[in-house]
Amino acid sequence: MSCVVEIRDLSFTYPDGHKALDHITLDLAHGEKVALVGPNGAGKSTLLLHLNGILPRQTGEIRVSGLDVSGKNLGRVRALVGLVFQSPDDQLFSPTVFDDVAYGPIYQGLPAEEVRQRVQEALERVKMSEYSSRVSHHLSVGEKKRIAIATVLSMKPAVLVLDEPTAGLDPRARRTLIELLRELPITMIVASHDLPMVRELLPRTVVMDQGRIVADGPTATILSDPDLLARHGLEQ
């Protein structure tokens, strides 16, 4: 079992009849860092929401660390998949940074000492240790983003899933975040429109359009194919 994420033939149709995913097949090996690019409405977010079963699978198969994403495995899978949403405000709902980062470990029922230790580790990873007692509401967007990543790192996930991590960041905050992600020794899948970041950070790129995977390969190859990019609205 060398793959962290295995997706076979996954399709999904929203209740209003909109087909968001159309026979998606995708594997992620351990330690791989993959970009998911494509125009708005291509189905990227829908795919990400399937990874920990927030959207219920309709047809096809998804496995995370060998576990089928459904039913009684959902609890385990949610701890294994660290999903960071686009808007950090949605992710930070507790009074202090500590409370937010501790949410996952506390929910898992870990003992208090281990919760504290995990929070500390996660905050160190995103270089925000001294923010532990701060109030999330007052942080800058870049700081909130890093805390949001810490809130899932504290669960020790097997794969980190990020939706538009650089959206809305100023150049310096964006730079900090890219360096931070580069240093994280963890499998990750990143949905983004930020192609320069993709080129710099993620060796493999998957292009989605209209619910389908239309290209999958080394980032350097894909991003140097102007026809492909233009066809899917991704001109640089």
Binding site: L49, N52, I54, G75, R76, V77, R78, A79, L80, V81, L83, F85, S87, D90, Q91, F93, Y103, G104, I106, Y107, Q108, G109, L110, T151, V152, M155
Partner: peptide, 26 residues
Amino acid sequence: DEVLRMLRARTARSGESEFSGHRAGG
């Protein structure tokens, strides 16, 4: 929409530990 996104973000982090000894949920 904002509430639904928050609830979704909460669900996404409501996982179980790999050690079966811990009861999830707080």
